[in-house]
Amino acid sequence: MFFPEMTTKTALKITKQKMTEYHLEFLERMNAIEVDAHWFRRAFHTFAASFLFYYLLPDETWVTNVKIILPILIVAGMFVIEYHRLRGDVEHKRFFGLRSYEKKRPASYLYFGVAVMLLFLFFPQQIAIPCILCASFTDPIIGETRYFFGKKYAYPLGFVISYLFFLVTWYRADGWVLIIVTTLGASGAVIGEARKCTYVDDDFMIQILPAVLLLILCQGLLLMQIDILPPPLIHPLSQ
């Protein structure tokens, strides 16, 4: 008499609606905490340099298998998470540090992961190491310099830093090789970072563009019986 008549279906619908509202409000309040996403993203970038530990892992058969399977599994996991986020199954707000333009497209961590996986599986470490270092350090350095001093200084500085990474990795190569490789690699890294593409993130391009350019160079020269690859920089632990 005092309460309006309500079917179970309607009650469930209202409860669900209320819960969704509460859930959204709760997420909004959580995001109101001003954690500096900017430095969180930078720290994630530099953290990625730790992946170079991969090259210290021994060359035993079972470890080699793990070295192939594990990166694939990790990236597959990232794909699943991103698939659910983009479908809306997982709330976008749950992902701290995502940029607004990543709301409707795969997030940059997925691109970063795919690039690292491709480098580990298909490129020699002499090419992969400086490319990973560029994504880990050159990218944040360019970002910070661009913010404080503008593009005019950011990209030349990024070029110098990338140049140093290629120099460090290839320091045992011949002089002429060193000049070509460092220039090509650093240019590739800076172009990969500077050219903004809607569907491919710069975290992917900064790694893959110099790697592909150097691989083409190495393979081209190899066809002419010239092997330019220096000895590996990192030696697996069992050796």
């Binding site: 500096d36 430095w39 930078r42 340099a49 460090v168």
Partner: peptide, 13 residues
């Protein structure tokens, strides 16, 4: 490289 690169970013973080 890993040590100094990370320390430089960890401080502001």
């Amino acid at each position: 490289l890993i040590l100094f690169g990370n320390v430089l970013v960890d401080i502001p973080f």
